[in-house]
Structure formats: structure tokens, C-alpha cells
Design a protein around this nucleic acid. Sequence first.
DNA 1: CTTCTTGTTACTGA
DNA 2: ATCAGTAACAAGAA
Length: 286
Amino acid sequence: MPELPEVETIKTDLEKALINVKITDLKIYLPKIIKTNLTTFKKTLKNNYFKKIKRRGKLIIISLKEKDKFLLIHLKMTGQLIYQKKEKIIAGGHNEENFELLFPGKHTHLFFTFADNSKLYFNDLRQFGYLKLVNQQELDLILSSYGLEPLAPDFNLKKLKSLLKNKKRNIKAFLLDQKIIAGIGNIYADEILFASKILPLRSTDTLQEEEVLRLFKNIKLILKKAVQYRGTTFNNFVDANGQKGNFLKKLKIYQKEKEPCLKCGSKIQKEKIAGRGTRFCPLCQR
DNA sequence: CTTCTTGTTACTGA
DNA sequence: ATCAGTAACAAGAA
């Protein structure tokens, strides 16, 4: 599940490889993932350049050479962007056995070819991800519904405090709401709440001063750390070079139901909260 | 066979 | 107005 750290990793990798490299071709296998007229999409992108790559929440925003044209890519749950320099790449590494990635594969729905013959593959098992061309005005409209960037300096304690106070809903739903804070998904929401010792069902307006402070610090800390580790390896996430992220080893609560809590040893619980599988320690989190 | 997985939007009902 | 809950999208794992 690409969340902020995964998308940030992909963004940085693509930036290194693809700025000002001419797109010579693009092949589309599954047109429905493109939310723009297909002919326009192809015509616009062929012979174009990526001038700048940004991330907002979980959305990738690529500025094209024209001032008023942007390519948006959302990976949703199972989307991958894989950059491949050669015909065949070996991915994995770390402590795991390597595995071959051959593309295009069964779930490759589109790929770009660049002037240096490198390729960028968009794979998506569940086909919820999309690509879309927009102008500045459309982009502004889309971004206007996004909440604060949790790693930006303007996301500060004071703002978090007032957001929490003005809402009356459980903290898990609050963290997942992209209109309030953009980029946190199910994995990091659970990790942040565990680190902050806050139960996911707590109403935001009941959080004590020190709880808000812990929450604030852990949002920053955990997301930053996850970015450093290139995200979490999990099911369908590999970064733009096909490498897995390292944060999986750092997970303390996500997917650990029925295991003993690392801090106190009690059995980690799992419940459906805010429509999502939610893991928590009933003793450490209050 | 059923149930679960999750990002986002749309919808319903409280 | 706010919020909770659910379905939808789709494919696979258990």
C-alpha cells in the first residue's frame, strides 16, 4: 500500500532518472486506467519531457515541458512504478534472495520508453490506480482538497492541536482522512498510534496535551524514518527501481495481531475501526 | 466456498 | 453540518 513514504521514495528515484529525458514512446495495454482521452494522452506525452516531479499526499505530480500540463499518477493500493534501465533487472537484495522482474508482466497496464531506451512500467494488480493529464487550474482544484503535508514545516503542533479539537471522531479515522493530513494510510496510522500510546477509538477532542504532543512527534518521526528506509516492503510495493523497502522490519504493530506486544507482551488485538483492519496493544495504548 | 486485504469516492442514515 | 458505516472498484491469498 503506497503511502507517503513509499510515494516519496518513488518520486525521488524517478527524479534522479527521468528529468529532461525525452519520452519516445508509450504502450498502453489497459486504457481504463487512463482518466484522460486516450488519443490526447498519447499525443501529449509522446516526445514530451518530465520537467519536475512532486508529491502531494499519495499523489505523484509530474510537470511536463509545457507550463500548463501535468501528469498525475495515483497508485492507490497495489500500483507500482518500476523504472528499468536494461531489458531485465534483478530486484530484491538486502537479506532476501534476489528475484527477477520481467516486464511487461501480467499486471503491466502501460509503459513509457525513453530516449535512452530505459522504460517506466505502471503495474497494478487491482487496477485501482490511475494516470491523468490536467492543466494548472484542474491541478489546483484537486490539490485544494488535500490536507496538510505532515513532513512540511508548516505542519506544527499548534495546527494539529486545533484540528483535533475542532473534530469529534476517532483518531484512527482522523489520521486516515486525506483532507486533514495528506499521506497517512493504514500501516502508518497504526504505527503512529502505537508509538503514541493512543487507542485508535479515542475521540480526537479528548486527547490530553501530552498525548497530542506524542502524536505530533510520532507522525513526523515515523514518516521520516520510513522515508529513510525507502518505505515498507509489503505485497505490492517496490520502489521505482524494483527494490523493496526496508521499513517492514521496523513495523511494531501492523500485521502483528495475535503476537505479543514488543513493549509489554500482551497480545496485540485487531479490530475493524474506521473501516480498516486496525491493530493495537490494549495495555500500552490508552 | 467465504472472508479478508485497502485508497478513495459516493452514498445512506443517524 | 458531522460523522459512522458500507458498497464499489478488482484480484488474489488464506
